[in-house]
Design a protein around this nucleic acid. Structure first.
Lengths: 237, 237
DNA sequence: CCAATAGTGTCTATCAGACATTATCTA
DNA sequence: TAGATAATGTCTGATAGACACTATTGG
């Protein structure tokens, strides 16, 4: 039999396939806290529980896994997130009561202000402080995914400036440092934090300043290179 | 409707599900070269092409994704690999001619000698030098997965001693360094390489020595901590 | 002895941590 | 001016790179 006939005769229905979903842990930073977006489930299973934004891959809508994750986030936030990174696939026979299932998890970052309008229009969706979210009984294994995303971001905070994508386009260095400190779970030394960012040339001064404390702080923008840059040495945790 | 009735009435058949497979990039080191295990496809699609060891998740045999990957590797090598790490999920509508499909890719390491008997008993499976494999027309998107695994291992070689799992239980430091150098794609400085391994206490002397060149080299074993340890600073690429 | 590979001593360069200091604002 | 936050200067410490050196083998 040649390949063409094989493909014509191939019937997916003959196989018992796992369910496939995508789920995203979308973080943002707002008024001094790390927030994560949760959606209240309106359907079984785990009806009423809070869960990560996500759902089944739709073969007609999604050309690949990342598009599926982006689509789900767009449906809940109204915007395309500026940073999305795959965490990994989690699949086993027990994580979904409906049967053997696989979810492909993503970690994502967005500026709070950019998606506030979109979120407020969807009543089942809201930001939780990350700490509070960790205490909730999330649907499926989403507590585990949240934990994994949190740990991934902690690492990123030690060797990159990626967390900056959770801030508005213009932000101050003290702001960025506080965000990194929350992710890392401890204080960072200002001097080291700033020195390496400057030396690597990852930020662009806007020229403007903003006052939060006493002295106004310079506003910066992420340069495109920031997305890929990693420092060869980690900061102390 | 309560959850129980929902689950009773839920029929997976009502949904169009993607195909789900696992594929592993199994590396080893033998006589100065990095090798990767390939399997010649005996079925459509891509009949006759070389491919990564893997296949569909079997819901009755596999309790989770990693078990599925381990099972497939066991079928081809006869052994349980000592190191297996998820690379990520790759899913889209075009990677498999049979339709929308997802593969969960793993990178794995094994000592060449440990699985030689198992491999020689399976005629469709053999080691290729990694460089040669990269030039083949592999099935599906396996060339891409191989590339991703290679890059992941390159990084590991810069900040860990994980590549050691591709060596026999007892190995010499020059051997380990040569392996790291192949992964990194360039020379490493012996002094730095050895110093950091010693300082972190990642290896255990066996007391025995082995001669390859002139002076015999001390034999070492990986300590368990090696699996998790990462250096805070990368070696120069 | 030489050639070859294994392994070390030691200096320098780089970059993070510590911590004092200066700068710029409000009240 | 005091108090607060922003930002920098400068020293120290850790660790990687460079490179010369010693060690151990066979021929």
């Amino acid at each position: 039999m040649d390949e063409e006939s094989y493909l014509r005769s191939y019937r997916k229905e003959d196989y018992d396939l796992p369910l496939v979903s995508v789920d995203s842990v979308l973080f943002t930073y707002f008024s001094g806290a790390l927030l994560v977006l949760l959606v209240q489930r309106g359907e079984h299973p785990d009806l009423g529980h809070w869960s990560l934004p996500g759902g089944y891959v739709d073969q007609s809508l999604d050309s690949d896994l990342e598009s599926a994750a982006r689509r789900k986030l767009r449906e809940k936030t109204g915007v395309d997130v500026p940073y999305l990174e795959q965490l990994g696939a989690y699949g086993n026979q027990s994580r979904d009561k409906r049967g053997w299932s696989v979810t492909v998890a993503y970690a994502a970052l967005v500026a709070h202000q950019d998606c506030q309008p979109g979120i407020q229009s969807v009543s089942d969706t809201r930001w939780f402080s990350c700490d509070e979210a960790a205490t909730l009984e999330l649907a499926f294994d989403h507590a585990h995914l949240l934990e994994a995303a949190r740990e991934r971001m902690r690492q990123k905070a030690l060797y990159s400036v990626l967390p900056g994508y959770a801030l508005p386009e213009e932000f101050t260095l003290p702001e960025l440092q506080r965000l990194h400190e929350i992710l890392v779970g401890g204080a960072l030394t200002t001097k080291s934090f700033r020195r390496r960012i400057e030396q690597a040339g990852l930020l662009e001064e806007t020229g403007r300043k903003r006052r939060e404390g006493a002295r106004p702080a310079m506003l910066y923008r992420l340069k495109d290179r920031s997305r890929e840059h990693t420092f060869v040495r980690n900061l102390e945790p």
